[in-house]
């Protein structure tokens, strides 16, 4: 079962790669000359109006609106096709990903968050599912899939190459209901923060692009939805993940109290969780502060995700603490 899990994951990563390439193709076709650009323009505006004025609370956008409504030449059709294939590949990869997580859980006879490898596996799965859910509500942002799949491939690559731990049982200290709550919440929050990070980066690119910046990274966001909608989506994701992260930290403290006798001890993982929490609180704050620009606020959110990554990967590699967890 453990070996099957590894194989499934390998195939899942390859499928994510396929999705990534297709998303990239969608971008590439889109950049073809003025015809495609002209053809695409009304469509983008349509998407922007749809996303901006109606929002997630509104009924789901019809999937056809952004992709086929425009009277397009073959080019646009082709990149829409690439996008569809990418989406299909992402769904297939997500199913394989679920398979990898489930078989790993069966092999270990427990939930899959006993070590950092499994944790990354689980959090990326949450990220994908969150991405697909957001997508059903706002198909217009499908193009962001390039960045989502890129982040997934990178994270899973790191998990497979750096963090891999053979299937094993849980340490006694990890056998606790609070631990399960703690880690599942942390994985959920991290997955959504991951998505928020991706939309945040694209927002920054897109905002730059809309200001007329045409040097390297900005044209990547040429096809992204309108920046205001992206920014709002970024905020939404963070506002959703932040209480979950707060709960993850609180339940971790309850667990730490039972296991070690103190609810908070500033070991490196706790310290970095605290840092992430404070940085994300800073983001929510900054966004509520009228004198702080939205772009500045989004930078704080991106910083927040970097601190999460530091906690996830850096701390396990660089520092030692009580979290008998990484399996390294």
């Amino acid at each position: 079962m453990g070996a099957l899990s590894n194989q499934l994951l390998t195939v899942a990563v390859l499928t994510y790669l396929v999705a990534m390439v297709c998303h990239a193709a969608e971008y590439a076709f889109g950049t073809r000359g003025p015809v495609a650009r002209a053809a695409a323009r009304p469509r983008r505006e349509l998407a922007a109006v749809g996303a901006g004025a109606r929002g997630t609370a509104a009924a789901p956008e019809p999937e056809t609106a952004p992709t086929t409504a425009s009277a397009t030449p073959a080019d646009a059709k082709r990149h829409a096709l690439a996008g569809r294939i990418a989406l299909a590949a992402t769904v297939v990869a997500a199913v394989l990903h679920v398979g990898a997580v489930v078989t790993r859980g069966i092999a270990a006879r427990r939930m899959t968050w006993g070590n950092m490898y499994e944790f990354v596996l689980t959090l990326t799965l949450v990220g994908v599912v969150a991405w697909l859910v957001v997508l059903t509500r706002r198909p217009a942002i499908r193009r962001l899939g390039l960045f989502v799949t890129l982040a997934l491939v990178l994270l899973l690559g790191v998990a497979g190459m750096v963090l891999y731990t053979p299937v094993g049982p849980l340490m006694p200290a990890l056998k606790s209901v609070w631990f399960i709550v703690h880690v599942s919440m942390a994985a959920t929050a991290s997955g959504i923060f991951l998505l928020g990070f991706v939309t945040g980066v694209i927002y920054l690119l897109r905002a730059g692009y809309e200001q007329g910046k045409r040097s390297f990274p900005y044209p990547l966001a040429r096809w992204a939805p309108e920046s205001e909608a992206l920014e709002r989506l970024t905020f939404r994701l963070h506002a959703f993940a932040f209480p979950i992260w707060t709960f993850a930290i609180a339940s971790g403290a309850v667990w730490a109290e039972a296991a070690w006798g103190r609810y908070w001890g500033w070991d490196p993982k706790e310290t970095w969780s605290f840092i992430s929490w404070v940085v994300y609180a800073g983001y929510l704050h900054a966004r509520a502060t009228p004198s702080v620009k939205r772009r500045t606020a989004t930078w704080i959110a991106i910083l927040g995700f970097l601190t999460m990554m530091m906690n996830l990967i850096g701390v396990n590699l660089f520092f030692e603490g009580l979290h008998s967890y990484s399996g390294l």
Binding site: T271, F274, I275, V278, A281, H285, T289
Partner: peptide, 18 residues
């Protein structure tokens, strides 16, 4: 704004602790 700066400082000040 000050609250924001202080939050930032708090995060920064915690780093040496790890």
């Amino acid at each position: 704004r000050t609250a924001l700066v202080l939050l930032f400082l708090l995060a920064l000040a915690a780093i040496p602790g790890s």
